[in-house]
């Protein structure tokens, strides 16, 4: 029997972080809410087991990432026409304006999904290489190479240096 109150309390405290992670993964707030909804339903189904493990967050994060990776293969709902592509200008400092933020998310969105996922897990979720590999079900070598290639792509697009903090 699922302890619904415990589930609600757990979800309420983490919803914001999950939505932000999902947004960075898919680049769209509506799609992010869809991803989180799927994760919440799966979490509810398995809450009896998941609630007893040490890090339930990892379970939810894994659902978000894997659902996003599967999502790229389907659903015409994601087809949104755009008339212009984001400008690719070099930015200095932090993303202070709305345009800067949107440009950054657009650049992330141009990366292949697995590389995008690696960046989000490592630099937004602050996971180590080993933890990221576990979440994606791949080797640590793959995580390192995907990270390097993703950062190279961003450096090229931004026309400057991308600084990362070692996790």
């Amino acid at each position: 029997m699922v302890d619904v109150d415990e589930y609600r309390e757990y979800v309420a405290g983490r919803m914001d972080g999950w939505r932000r992670t999902a947004y960075l993964l898919c680049g769209d707030w509506h799609a992010a809410d869809d991803l989180v909804s799927i994760a919440l339903v799966k979490l509810y189904r398995h809450w009896g087991k998941v609630s007893t493990v040490e890090h339930p967050d990892a379970y939810v994060r894994q659902i978000l990432v894997r659902t996003m990776l599967n999502e790229r293969r389907r659903s015409w709902r994601r087809e949104h026409p755009v008339t212009t592509v984001p400008d690719r200008v070099a930015a200095a400092g932090g993303p202070e304006s709305v345009a800067d933020r949107q440009m950054f998310v657009a650049l992330l969105g141009e990366l292949p999904p697995r590389r995008r996922a690696v960046l989000v897990l490592r630099y937004f979720c602050d996971l180590s290489v080993e933890e990221t590999a576990a979440q994606l079900g791949c080797s640590t070598g793959t995580v390192k190479s995907q990270t390097a290639r993703a950062l190279d792509s961003l450096r090229t697009r931004l026309g400057g240096a991308v600084v990362v903090e070692e996790v």
Binding site: G94, L151, A161, E165
Partner: peptide, 11 residues
């Protein structure tokens, strides 16, 4: 200069 973590949090 782009700080990846900072950008992600801001974005």
């Amino acid at each position: 200069m782009v700080h990846m973590s900072e950008w992600m949090r801001e974005a």
